[in-house]
């Protein structure tokens, strides 16, 4: 068990927590945060796995992936929050309606 195994295991924990949150939490902001958990989990896994190189320098490719991933996640999060906000301002709700029929028009 090396330090990096901790990163990887921690990443897996974060990912699973995020998955559960995205699936189950009904507050929309919770869902957005949960998705960020999942992202961070993957980034931790990537960083952990990047350090399996025999040389002291870690593999740069996963690091680049993390940097790209972060930007993409930021973009997704921003859009998610913007939609949540607009949705709240239109309907006053903070949850997806489970009991309403899909695609119904008023």
């Amino acid at each position: 068990m090396t330090t990096y195994d901790v990163y990887v295991a921690g990443g897996a924990v974060l990912f699973a927590l995020g998955t559960y949150g995205l699936l189950e939490r009904s507050h929309l902001v919770h869902k957005v945060i949960a998705a960020n958990f999942m992202g961070s989990g993957i980034f931790l896994v990537l960083i952990g796995l990047a350090n399996r190189t025999p040389t002291p320098e870690p593999d740069p490719v996963p690091q680049a992936m993390v940097l790209t991933g972060i930007v993409v996640t930021v973009a997704m999060t921003a859009l998610g929050l913007a939609i949540v906000k607009r949705y709240f301002s239109e309907t006053g709700r903070t949850t997806l309606d489970a009991d309403e029929k899909p695609g119904e028009r008023r």
Binding site: T19, L22, L23, E24, S26, L96, A98, K101, P102
Partner: peptide, 19 residues
Amino acid sequence: LLGVEERLVTWVTASTLFV
């Protein structure tokens, strides 16, 4: 049938099914 589908596509059910 619409009722079954309605329940099937609620977020919790559907996303859990996906996982």
